[in-house]
């Protein structure tokens, strides 16, 4: 089984089968570039991911492993179908996988999934965040996502007024 070494920003190395790694768009291109630049076809590729730390990388790889036999979704699926693919990928395993995470981890996971081009993971994490926004008030959202208001003067009041007619419709 051909393997690839994936190294996180804080130096942790993961040995992953190439077949699994290639399910990430980013890793796939990295492996291919490595193949082209290397004379020895037997050499084990080594990929450094400088933006993702070990804890997050482990989660991404875990998710990939669980979903290694899923059909790969074409990138333009969304445009064709409009909706539905996000729900399709949401399994009980995914829910258990995401359940213990706080929003900080989820945020890092979104960034990682985006960087590594793992569409399925990106979908379920975004979906999770969306569910955290749904039905919340502005203040609740701010608390949940640790965001601060940077509106000046009457901007906030203005936004509230603008929102009002949206509701009236």
């Amino acid at each position: 089984m051909a393997l690839v070494r994936v190294i996180s920003s804080d130096g942790a190395a993961f040995l992953v089968s190439q077949r699994l790694a290639k399910r990430s768009g980013k890793l796939k291109t990295e492996i291919e570039t490595f193949r082209k630049s290397s004379d020895n076809s037997e050499a084990q590729p080594e990929i450094r991911i400088v933006t993702i730390r070990a804890e997050i990388l482990r989660l991404v790889l875990q998710w990939l492993q669980q979903h290694q036999n899923d059909p790969v979704l074409p990138a333009n699926q969304n445009e064709q179908d409009g909706r539905g693919d996000a729900e399709m990928g949401q399994s009980q395993w995914d829910r258990d996988f995401l359940a213990p995470m706080d929003l900080g981890i989820v945020m890092e996971l979104i960034l990682a999934a985006n960087h590594l081009e793992v569409k399925g993971l990106l979908d379920i994490t975004c979906k999770l965040v969306e569910s955290k926004i749904t039905g919340r008030t502005v203040d609740e959202i701010r608390t949940a996502f640790k965001l601060k208001s940077d509106f000046k003067g009457n901007e906030e009041e203005q936004t509230r007024l603008e929102n009002r007619w949206c509701v009236e419709n």
Binding site: M1, S9, D10, G11, A12, F14, R48, E55
Partner: peptide, 16 residues
């Protein structure tokens, strides 16, 4: 078989 194998832990040489 498990295809993800962590060979070193996070204590390795740090890039940053």
């Amino acid at each position: 078989v498990s295809s993800v194998l962590e060979v070193t832990n996070g204590a390795g040489p740090s890039l940053t």
